[in-house]
C-alpha cells in the first residue's frame, strides 16, 4: 500500500487549481514515470475537473487514482505515502513529517504548494521555511506542478530530512508550570 503510492492533500479547505493540476494527464504521466502505481487525491471542498468522479477512477497513464473529499484515516495514509503533494497547511505537513504509522518507503518526498486564495494567507511563509531548510520542494504556483514533479527525479540516497524532534514533555511542562505544579 505505502510503496509507490502518491497522495494529494488539500486539507479541509478548497484548492481547485491544485486538484486540476494534479489530475492533469501531464502530471499523472510524470508520476507514472517516477514509479508511482497508485494515487489518492484528497480534495476537501474543491471542485472536480470534468471527467473525474469521487471514488476509484479508470487507469489513465498507468496510475490508479482514487478521489475522496475527506477521510478519518487521512493522517495515517499521508504518513505512509512515498510522495505527498500538499497544500502548505500545518496539519497536512505534520501528517507527513510525524507519521502515525511508520512508512515502508525508503525515501519519502514532500511537495508543498501554497494556497494563496485563503484569507489572511500565510501558506507561502511556511512553504518558504520548509523549502529553505530542505524539508520539502516548493511549487509556488499550482499550474507549475508538472514541472516541479518532473524536476524531482529518481529518489537519491541523500539522508532523510531532519525535522525538529517531537517532545511530549515540553507541553506538559508548560501546562504544569502555569497551574503551579512545580
Amino acid at each position: 500500500m505505502a510503496e509507490h503510492h502518491a497522495i494529494l492533500t488539500v486539507g479541509s479547505t478548497r484548492f481547485d487549481s491544485l486538484v486540476t493540476s494534479f489530475l492533469s494527464p501531464t502530471a499523472l504521466a510524470i508520476l507514472s514515470s517516477l514509479g508511482i502505481k497508485t494515487a489518492l487525491a484528497q480534495i476537501g471542498a474543491s471542485e472536480l475537473p470534468t471527467g473525474w468522479t469521487e471514488g476509484v477512477n479508470a487507469i489513465p497513464h498507468g496510475v490508479r487514482v482514487e478521489i475522496i473529499r475527506f477521510a478519518s484515516d487521512l493522517e495515517d495514509r499521508v504518513g505512509q505515502a512515498e510522495l505527498v503533494v500538499s497544500h502548505a497547511g500545518a496539519g497536512s505537513i505534520l501528517s507527513f513529517i510525524r507519521p502515525t504509522i511508520p512508512s515502508s518507503a525508503p525515501q519519502r518526498r514532500l511537495v508543498l504548494v501554497p494556497n494563496s486564495t485563503l484569507m489572511d494567507s500565510h501558506q507561502a511563509d511556511l512553504a518558504d521555511e520548509f523549502g529553505s531548510k530542505g524539508w520539502g520542494t516548493v511549487c509556488e504556483n499550482p499550474e507549475a506542478l508538472s514541472a516541479t514533479l518532473s524536476s524531482l527525479g529518481k529518489p537519491s540516497s541523500a539522508s532523510a530530512a531532519s525535522y525538529p524532534a517531537y517532545s511530549a514533555k515540553k507541553v506538559s511542562l508548560i501546562l504544569d508550570s502555569t497551574l503551579g505544579y512545580s
Partner: peptide, 19 residues
Amino acid sequence: SGGHTAEMMRLVSGLDWQR
C-alpha cells in the same frame, strides 16, 4: 477544526491524564 485540530491533538498527546 482542520489543521488547528491536527496540531492540538499533537499538543495534548503527552499529557498526564491522571493529573
